[in-house]
Design a protein around this nucleic acid. Sequence first.
DNA 1: CATTGCAGGTGGAAT
DNA 2: ATTCCACGTGCAATG
Lengths: 230, 230
Amino acid sequence: MRLVIARCSVDYVGRLTAHLPMATRLLVVKADGSVLVHSDGGSYKPLNWMSPPCSLREEAGTWTVTNRAGEQLIITLDAIVYESSHDLGVDPGLVKDGVEAHLQVLLAAHIETFGEGYQLVRREYPTPVGPVDILARAPSFGVDDDVGPGGGRHIAIEIKRRAGIDAVEQLTRYLDLLNRDPLLAPVGGVLAAQMIAPQARTLAEDRGIRCVVVDYDQLRGLDDPSLRLF
Amino acid sequence: MRLVIARCSVDYVGRLTAHLPMATRLLVVKADGSVLVHSDGGSYKPLNWMSPPCSLREEAGTWTVTNRAGEQLIITLDAIVYESSHDLGVDPGLVKDGVEAHLQVLLAAHIETFGEGYQLVRREYPTPVGPVDILARAPSFGVDDDVGPGGGRHIAIEIKRRAGIDAVEQLTRYLDLLNRDPLLAPVGGVLAAQMIAPQARTLAEDRGIRCVVVDYDQLRGLDDPSLRLF
DNA sequence: CATTGCAGGTGGAAT
DNA sequence: ATTCCACGTGCAATG
């Protein structure tokens, strides 16, 4: 990894064009040839960059970074303030927990979160437009209930960390499809998420989809250690 | 800006938990207190980070970065290989061109892209569920045409750089709404994008929405300099 | 201040 | 290789 502090201007020509006026910035050149241009503030996102695979050509006062698609990052160097190089080796990588996948595991293991007597049919229930996160069966409590052949009503559950309108649309597509299957219909919908955007809730309820806000930490407290990812 | 090359392990506890085993990495501490942890490869995204506003507390072999929401980045330092500090000043910032906004300006200026006789009604036509990118009017060529009060058929145009299913859903919501307005109905839909995902095209055409692939560079060639953003 | 929609999104997994 | 979806999405504009 090469670190360069330099006064430079930068032009990107690719999916869009972007220009950075002359100023002092950090340039990071990684082992795979990728280049980051960072200012001393803002966020983790560089002002400009080129992702690998790409090649760096150095000339007099100009660096040109090109990728396979022909996109170019052109760095015009006015003055190099500082430079150093380091061998970091390969990184062992990141271990994550808490994402949607784990929510799905936890909710499948605690399907009663959605109501007493709920039974898991399966996780990742396949449909032609993609897998439904969880398919479950709700119990029937009376003869008037709108029950399916299984003796209960099927429930398709869409799980999101944060649910927006797109989650409602996605679940709606699943429900349209599943309800065409006489062995499953009628299938109800549940949107389960840590956070549900107000517009998403409105749209969901308008379509008869139940909204359930789930508490990840609480679910996690209920789980047994074997369900933990690390 | 402070640059540190160090052997370290990193733990993030916040919206999720994540762990980085001990290895040599680049740590960037920016003037606003934000911290980036980069490996010598991958992309512009750090392995771990803390965005501003946040505060860094340094102890013996441990850095603790905390933000207002209580999320923490805990860096355990085994050995500092290298360290330097630089004053970069404030960055003048980035100038962009080529995003959806510019596509919208160009397409509005060249509304005939969608067909001969098309007329612009307005850009960012407001609806209760958000603004439609472009509302236009198509000409009527015969008495049998399904025309509205304006003497032509209204067309709602959704513009994306890359259109996916979500773009079709979005346009569908607009069309549902606009078609309830007797002063506008009937309103046709056009999805205009530089790239349209096959599933999006299928869904759009199934719903009677026309798909138009637009060539940004060509449109740009047609424009007059006043429409350029820089 | 919350919400919404875009992003050079990026990344990963499944087809 | 393409297509889909999640992301500690980040980010800015807007009500």
